[in-house]
């Protein structure tokens, strides 16, 4: 049973100007969330309107499936994206996802939405060339749907509870998939306990996004040594969330080729890097455990590049996508 208040407009122009006036968009136009479309999105995910996806206790906010569906429609999603959107919202609102902090912080952290499993192929999620950027409906709108929930439901509004000094374009949308088909590695969601045939979303906070570009490295060790130079600076030092914090490495094919050639697994990379994090008995990378380093295969050929997603004060949360139950 839908519970959201309803407004009637004589035209799209009238609607969009009213939405802008009320602050209901991220600055870009939105798709009108008609009751019919919202119902179709809920049905596509097998969700009841009132089902609670999560809460922000510090903001007196409860996020329902209907809230998520309204914002998914507005973001430009197709109905079949809704299970992924619902899972992303659940992951973002996980207690250790620390959503109050990652969306309110002066640092302007963003949320990376990383998709794994069959859902990537079903929805056309880009995992290869240009996967961080514009041009792909699923990437653009699933990530945007989460951000519209942050804004329209969770009160993450610039100048109000979003106090970012600069903020980031990643806050419009930041969503991509792992390129499982072009990597021999164990996918992220399987490393985190799910089955290969499961679909999953991992939401990771991103305080900054750092490219490690190295065209000269020709061995796994050389690539790792380049990564070390960047990993050992720039990670938030707060440890109050415990030892299970994360840093995400997104490695492109022209770095992965050297690991593939010598049969290195993701664990082999961690095994090489972890002891080298330490200098004079101090861990220079503020990770509690080797497995806190999450490694994702993505991106296209051309650049010898790996990107580091340095976190804000949150764990990366992996949530299974249930096609029948959002």
């Amino acid at each position: 049973m839908a519970s959201a208040e309803q407004h009637e407009y004589g035209s799209y122009d009238e609607l969009i100007e009213d939405y802008y006036a009320r602050g209901w968009t991220d600055g870009l136009p939105v798709v009108p969330p008609t009751p019919e479309k919202v119902s179709a999105f809920l049905a596509a995910a097998g969700l009841e309107a009132g089902e609670v996806l999560g809460e922000v206790p510090t903001r007196e906010v409860t996020v329902t499936a209907e809230h998520a569906a309204i914002n998914a429609v507005m973001a430009g999603c197709r109905p079949e994206y809704m299970p992924a959107v619902a899972a992303a919202v659940r992951a973002h609102l996980h207690e250790k996802g620390n959503c109050h902090s990652t969306t309110g912080t002066l640092s302007g952290a963003a949320q990376a939405v990383i998709l794994n499993g069959p859902v990537r192929l079903e929805l056309g999620v880009e995992c290869g060339s240009a996967c961080f950027g514009p041009g792909f409906r699923a990437n653009a709108t699933i990530g945007r749907a989460l951000r519209l929930v942050v804004r329209n439901v969770c009160r993450g509004i610039p100048g109000v509870l979003d106090r970012a000094s600069f903020s980031t374009t990643m806050r419009y949308s930041f969503c991509f998939g792992e390129d499982e088909e072009n990597s021999g590695w164990v996918p992220l969601h399987v490393e985190r306990g799910l089955a290969p045939e499961d679909s999953a979303v991992t939401v990771a906070s991103v305080m900054n996004l750092t490219p490690v570009t190295d065209f000269t490295a020709r061995t796994p060790e050389a690539v790792c040594d380049s990564l070390l130079k960047f990993l050992t600076r720039g990670v938030a030092t707060d440890r109050w969330l415990g030892e299970d914090n994360n840093v995400v490495l997104v490695m492109g094919p022209d770095h992965r080729r050297y690991f593939d050639a010598e049969g290195w697994s993701k664990d082999d990379i961690r095994g090489y890097l972890w002891p080298r994090f330490f200098k004079d008995g101090r861990n220079r990378v503020h990770l509690g455990k080797p497995e806190g380093l999450l490694i994702v295969a993505a991106g296209g050929p051309g650049m010898g590049e790996t990107w580091i997603l340095f976190p804000h004060l949150a764990w990366a949360i992996t949530q299974r996508i249930d096609p029948a139950r959002g």
Partner: peptide
């Protein structure tokens, strides 16, 4: 002062 608006919003919604 940099987060005064946020604090006032939080007090209001609390």
């Amino acid at each position: 002062k940099a987060v005064q608006g946020s604090a006032e919003s939080m007090a209001k919604l609390s």
